[in-house]
């Protein structure tokens, strides 16, 4: 091991597709057949995972904290809903891209406000933007349907071939495919030199600027991309549930999203997806205990995670898998 095996080598090795990843996606595909009676919850996991992935791009890779990521989710959701209601773009995949684009435009416009200032003002500005949009959606209730939400959303068959069925099977496969494609893209991006430069910025913006990384431009780029992802997640939500109400902009949605990402862990892309699965299962369990008060347990989980410490929690959770991996890698040696 000489110094020649530098950062490039390590990051190349990290970028390689691992067995674990293959297993993850195989399990996801297997879910289509195994949990054939739970498509609705699986679909929810898929778009929530994509939404969390979009937050991971800015939080885990660029270190931008957001309390109002629901803004982009909401724009995507309303955009997809309006396109379907008014029959502007009938084809779901195309509508998805348009909705993502709309969120992306908003992301680009607001990125200039967000990347300025300290973490606290980032929190405030992102929160403010989401609240602002919620207020707007409420005021223009003749367009958005206000508190009742958009009425009469009917989604056409995907690519004109696959109609959404009543069990949600097509919806889930559709979400899964979109998630996979966007995941691959995100994976490509974070392992590219661009992605590495983002991590440099996250770790030390001053030093990153000193070695010639255009910090602000990179942050704007990733924020815009993240908004695109969140918009698509919102559009998937609307297309699979035929719903779009003020609730898409709510603070709780942004807060839950942070929890999703924290459960899964930020900064390695799978965190959001794993977090979405765990969060949704937890939510299901909690609401079967106390139907009205499941939020209490969600709150408790948040408090406990912070008190235990995120780092320590991951170490605890990963202790067994790591042990197994090490045993498999070096069968003769005991893991010390």
């Amino acid at each position: 091991m000489s110094a020649d095996h530098g950062v490039g080598e390590i990051s190349l090795r990290r970028a390689r597709w691992g067995h674990g990843e293959t297993a993850f996606w195989l399990i996801a595909v297997a879910a289509i057949f195994v949990f054939s009676d739970r498509y609705l919850i699986l679909t929810e996991m898929a778009w929530l995972g994509l939404f969390a992935l979009s937050l991971d791009l800015i939080l885990g890779y660029a270190g931008i904290v957001s309390l109002g990521h629901a803004a982009f989710f909401g724009v995507g959701a309303y955009c997809a809903g309006l396109l379907a209601v008014h029959g502007l773009v009938k084809e779901p995949v195309l509508a998805l891209v348009v909705a993502g684009g709309a969120a992306m435009v908003l992301g680009f416009a607001t990125s200039f406000l967000v990347i300025r200032g300290s973490e606290l003002s980032q929190l405030m500005v992102t929160l403010g933007i989401a609240l602002l949009l919620r207020e707007l959606a409420n005021k223009f209730s003749d367009i958005t349907g206000g508190f009742d939400g958009l009425q009469g959303i009917v989604i056409d068959p995907i690519l004109g071939l696959f109609a959404f069925d009543i069990f949600g099977k097509v919806g889930f496969i559709y979400c899964l495919v979109v998630l996979f494609v966007l995941f691959l893209l995100a994976r490509l991006i974070v392992h590219s030199p661009f992605g590495l430069s983002l991590r440099a910025i996250r770790n030390n913006p001053l030093r990153a600027a000193a070695i010639g990384i255009p910090v602000n431009r990179r942050l704007i780029a990733i924020y815009t991309l993240s908004a695109f992802y969140a918009g698509i997640a919102g559009a998937l939500f609307t297309q699979t549930t035929a719903l779009a109400s003020l609730d898409v902009f709510s603070f709780e949605r942004s807060a839950d999203l942070l929890l999703v990402l924290v459960i899964g862990g930020a900064g390695y892309l799978y965190g959001g997806l794993i977090g979405a699965v765990v969060f949704r299962v937890l939510q299901d369990v909690f609401s079967s205990w106390t139907p009205q008060f499941w939020q209490f347990w969600i709150g408790l989980v948040l408090v406990l995670i912070v008190l235990i410490g995120r780092e320590r929690m991951y170490r605890g959770v990963l202790w067994l898998p790591r042990l197994v991996m090490r045993r498999m890698a070096f069968p003769g040696r005991s893991a010390s």
Binding site: V65, L120, A255, L258, Q292, F296, G299, V301, L302
Partner: peptide, 23 residues
């Protein structure tokens, strides 16, 4: 701790307070 931790923690407290009072 980082502001993110503080935010997560206090959001958790808010959720708990809301549901406890609701209950």
């Amino acid at each position: 701790r980082s502001p993110l931790d503080q935010v997560l923690f206090t959001i958790g407290l808010v959720f708990m307070a809301v549901t406890v009072v609701d209950y």
